[in-house]
Nucleic acid binder design. Structure first.
Length: 668
RNA sequence: GGUGAUGUAGCUCAGAUGGUCAGAGCGGCGGACUCAUAACCCGCAGGUCGGUGGUUCAAUUCCACCCAUCACCA
């Protein structure tokens, strides 16, 4: 590594500080921290910044609910995040907040530039409005009864019980969460960003951003659908930055959040000699900028963000690295199952290195979800970290310290074996660089197996019984400890504190990546202390118990496959007459049907294009599920489902009533 | 519904331009050892590679459809 160090700026997504950090958050910060530590170990100039995402309606309202200011609320959670991150050995160079003067200045500046270039315009839109509170309501702040499953107290965008998605006006008896009154529709002028004009520039960015193929696939999908302009303003009251030149308009939180990356970096520059903001953010900067994010916020980071940066005269990200979500025991995290585990609850029971290693052992560069299987977690960490890795040092240290005053020999008995460990350096570094952590971990553990086999082959405990072969004991253990040392250096980005302790035991000052390829000889060791202890199953058990919020309510689930007549009657099936049928542009299988259901007309999308010609359908009577929750699709809203049988494709057969049935009649 | 991803041994995951590509680790079983945090070492374990069709001399690997899970639909 003799070339000039790379200048790299790395970010993790800014945590939204309206709650405590949990195991899901940690996937991203651990993934990023490993990468940053690896770069630093190589000798690169790598800077890792983050910040609290502190704006938006949820924070404003939660603060109001608790009777404190948003600043107080976010300061509290920010502190939690900072402390928990620190205790998980996640080492930021700076952790700031989006509610900062640096961010406000940057956002205002970017907005000005975008306005000058004509990328900002205004348009009047209609939204739910709470007259009593005097504010517009995001979907999440309208609640009501789910139109599909009739569960009460559901949000305006989706039902948590049955999973239906809809818009606030579809709710039965919609009420404002804030005042309990019925929301009305009201118009307001909003600011828009002309994302639609950016396709070419974004494609250009994509072509050299080295994005993961899954990310590219997603981008292509969005391009195909056509980019829509982006509403970047919100009406007062709102917790955020006021749009310059307006009285009561604020920047939408998602506009200022990514700017928070720059603001945090700016904040660091202002306090650091020789670190220049422009060196990293000028359009012709030779520094690299990487954003680590979750797959759910790709839209913001691969479309809006590069477009806004381009439009306002800054450089764009070198790449955006998206990861998947965390499941626990194969399922979404759940408070009732005790698998919604807060970072702090974990730390109260277990060592951070265990989780860092487990995540590393499962992480790759793709957007696939990773599973924290708690049984596997215990087995894997104990077996790999303690049984294999730490054991190497543990079984050699005793001989060296007791028989040889802690002295290592001046040469290795098996240099070619050590050379294998040294040679792995490049491969492992390549894996880290490409975020193929699981491959790196596998390779390291395969080498650990090899080290244990070596010790087993020479059996120092047997040789130690014979004075004559005592020197061989020292040599074999020196070999063993050197293999251990190289592996610890390779793992130090993953388990930094354990590596620190190992380094102290080996009596060395500091490690660089390349040290792993050179043996440590002739020096004296410190006393050996256990570097890590085994995880006991009851530690995990306790953590789960502490995470279980309420006694699980035993849901009465029907054991067999039958349903009651009541269940059946929930399905409101009606006779409908097809008034109109036409193909849907952009959909291979869909036909858009306009149905007469007696008292009204409705539009339904049906996947029957391959089986029926549109003209042949007009005038036909069919059966439609009338109380299915309306479903918002790319092509419009579908307000029901037409019944048909068959495996699909051309083999689909619509159900029809006998002559005499009239539109609107109920099927029962 | 559309789009994308995923579905391989009990568990967690590798893998191939289609033909020694059916694998690793853990668990399990048997054996050996006692230096080591009951760690380590040796051996064994037979999963129709989600399902159904198709292409092919040959498919788990290609295609179509279906099912399940996850995500996005701004």
């Amino acid at each position: 590594m003799s070339e000039t160090p790379r200048k790299i700026l790395v970010t993790s997504a800014l945590p939204y500080v309206n709650g405590s950090p949990h195991m899901g958050h940690l996937v991203e910060y651990i993934q990023t921290d490993i990468w940053v530590r690896f770069q630093k170990l190589l000798g690169n100039d790598c800077i890792y910044v983050c910040a609290s995402d502190a704006h938006g309606t949820p924070i404003m309202l939660k603060a109001r609910e608790q009777g404190i200011t948003p600043e107080e609320l976010t300061a509290g959670y920010s502190k939690e995040f900072k402390n928990d991150f620190a205790d998980f050995n996640i080492e930021f160079d700076n952790f700031h907040t989006t509610h900062s003067p640096e961010n406000e200045a940057l956002v205002a500046g970017m907005f000005e530039r975008l306005r000058e270039t004509g990328d900002i315009y205004t348009r009047t839109i209609e939204q739910s409005y709470d007259e009593k509170e005097g504010m517009f309501l995001p979907d999440r702040f309208v609640k009501g009864t789910c139109p599909r499953c009739k569960s009460e107290d559901q949000y305006g965008d989706a039902c948590e019980v049955c999973g239906a998605t809809y818009s606030p006006e579809d709710l039965i008896d919609p009420v404002s969460v804030l005042s309990g009154t019925t929301p009305v529709k009201r118009e307001s002028e909003h600011y828009f960003f002309r994302l639609s004009e950016y396709e070419d520039r974004l494609r250009d960015w994509m072509s050299h951003a080295a994005l993961d193929k899954n990310v590219v696939a997603k981008l292509d999908e969005w391009f195909q659908a056509g980019l829509q302009d982006w509403d970047i303003s919100r009406d007062a009251p709102y917790f955020g930055f006021r749009i310059p030149g307006t009285e009561n308009k604020y920047f939408y939180v998602w506009l200022d959040a990514p700017v928070g990356y720059m603001a945090s970096f700016k904040h660091l520059c202002d306090r650091t000699d020789g670190l220049e903001f422009d060196d990293y953010w000028d359009p012709d900067s030779d520094a690299e900028v990487f954003h680590f994010i979750g797959k759910d916020i790709m839209y913001f980071h691969t479309l809006f963000w590069p477009a806004v940066l381009k439009g306002s005269g800054y450089r764009q990200p070198t790449s955006v690295y998206a990861h998947g979500f965390l499941t626990v025991n194969g399922q979404k995290m759940s408070k009732s199952r005790g698998t919604f585990i807060k970072a702090r609850t974990y730390l109260d029971n277990l060592h951070p290195a265990a989780l860092r290693y487990y995540y590393a052992a499962k992480l790759g560069p793709t957007i696939e979800d990773i599973d924290l299987n708690l049984e596997d977690f215990v087995a894997r960490v104990n077996s790999d970290l303690i049984g294999k890795l730490v054991n190497i040092a543990s079984r050699c240290a005793g001989f060296i310290n007791k028989k040889f005053d802690g002295r290592l020999t001046d040469s290795l008995p098996d240099e070619s074996l050590f050379a294998e460990f040294a040679a792995a350096s490049g491969t492992i570094a390549g894996h880290y660089e490409k975020r193929e952590y699981s491959k790196a971990m596998r390779l390291v553990m395969a080498l650990a197996d090899k080290a244990n086999r070596y010790i087993d082959e020479y059996k120092p405990w047997v040789m130690a019984k014979d004075e004559a072969s005592l020197p061989d004991v020292q040599r074999v253990c020196t070999q063993g400890l050197n293999m251990f040392r190289s592996l610890m250096i390779y793992l130090s980005p993953v388990i930094p504190t354990v590596a620190e302790d190992a380094r102290a035991f080996l009596n060395e000052d500091a490690w660089r990546w390349d040290d792993a390829s050179e043996p440590l000889l002739g020096s004296t060791l410190q006393k050996f202390k256990p570097l890590l202890t085994r995880i006991e199953a009851d530690q995990v058990q306790r953590m789960v118990e502490q995470s279980r919020e309420t006694a699980p309510v035993a849901k009465e689930e029907t054991q067999d496959d039958t349903i009651s007549i009541d269940d059946f009657m929930k399905v409101d099936m009606r006779i409908a007459k097809i008034e109109k049928a036409e193909p849907v542009e952009g959909a291979d299988k869909l036909l858009a049907l306009t149905l007469d259901v007696g008292d009204s007309q409705r539009q339904v999308f049906a996947g029957i294009k391959a089986a029926y010609a549109p003209d042949a359908l007009v005038g036909r009577h069919v059966i439609v599920v009338a109380n299915l929750a309306p479903r918002k699709m790319r092509f419009g809203v579908s307000e029901g489902m037409v019944l048909a049988a068959g495996p699909g494709g051309e083999d689909i057969f619509l159900l029809s009533p006998d002559d005499g049935a009239k539109p609107g009649m109920r099927v029962k």
